[in-house]
């Protein structure tokens, strides 16, 4: 199923026969896909197709919902992230996540970005350097540099979301999972985040879940289409949008259904 255009190096993240059950209901059905390194991978599909569950399975956030059961394998650089000797904490360090709504902590801008660094008790000037770089990478630094001690909640929605991205980048993950990260934002804020993601992709592998087809087409290198928990098609974004191989994909991207 996954035959991207060019032969490429080993994927940074891959799933093999990944299924997620809620009781007897199968939310994800044996999904196997590979996330290429330092590219933007979009996951699209109608609401309820399991795309959020898919990326939550990619950094073990699904485990926070005790009613969900996971089968199959998720590998990060070839290593099973669900292996018993691997701690979810370490997985989430390598594979960061940003949520649908901005989730800033009720603290200052600075402390928000420093959150992950404080866990490792880093030196304060190292923390400060990383905070500034991370804010730059998230394209927020110029807007907030006057007062990093401002409460983060005083920022606009779009700024808050970029702050969340900066916060995730600060712990230097290899993969960044974005769960509908622009769904609650206005078009201008969305555009800023898309620009920033394009700049980031040389450094981080990005998985972008979105129900906004245009966004996937604009931003991503590779697109995966999910329908009712199944991976229908995955391939280079340009090919998938111009010449979808599957009828379902075509129907979805031409807007014939949800």
């Amino acid at each position: 199923m996954s035959e991207p255009a060019a032969p490429e190096p080993a994927p940074v993240l891959s799933t093999e026969g990944l299924s997620v059950f809620a009781g007897s209901r199968e939310i994800l059905r044996r999904v196997s896909l590979a996330v290429p390194e330092k590219k933007i991978t979009a996951v699209i599909g109608p609401s309820g197709c399991g795309k959020t569950t898919l990326i939550r399975a990619m950094n073990r956030m699904v485990e926070l919902s005790p009613e969900l059961r996971i089968e199959g394998t998720v590998r990060y650089r070839g290593r099973d992230i669900y292996a018993p000797e691997v701690s979810p904490v370490v997985v989430r360090r390598r594979i960061g996540m940003v949520f649908q709504r901005p989730t800033v902590f009720p603290q200052s801008i600075y402390e928000n970005v420093a959150f992950g660094l404080r866990l490792d008790r880093e030196e304060e000037d190292a923390v400060e350097r990383t905070v500034v770089t991370s804010l730059r990478r998230a394209g927020l630094y110029e807007e907030v540099k006057e007062d990093l001690d401002r409460p983060a909640l005083s920022l606009s929605g779009g700024q808050q979301q970029r702050l969340c991205i900066a916060r995730a980048l600060a712990v230097n993950p290899s993969v960044l999972l974005l769960d509908e990260a622009t769904a609650s934002l206005d078009p201008i804020a969305t555009q800023k985040i898309e620009e920033m993601l394009r700049e980031l992709k040389g450094e981080v592998s990005i998985v972008l879940v979105t129900h906004n087809i245009a966004q996937a087409a604009r931003t991503s290198d590779v697109t995966a289409y999910l329908h009712q928990g199944r991976l229908i098609e995955m391939g280079a974004t340009s090919e998938l949008f111009e010449a979808p191989r599957e009828k379902l994909t075509e129907a979805y991207i031409t807007g014939r259904f949800g």
């Binding site: 956030m61 989730t103 959150f115 916060r167």
Partner: peptide, 15 residues
Amino acid sequence: VPRALEESGLALGAT
């Protein structure tokens, strides 16, 4: 405490 805040902390690799 909003569930989203808790999850954000965990997603940053906090125990």
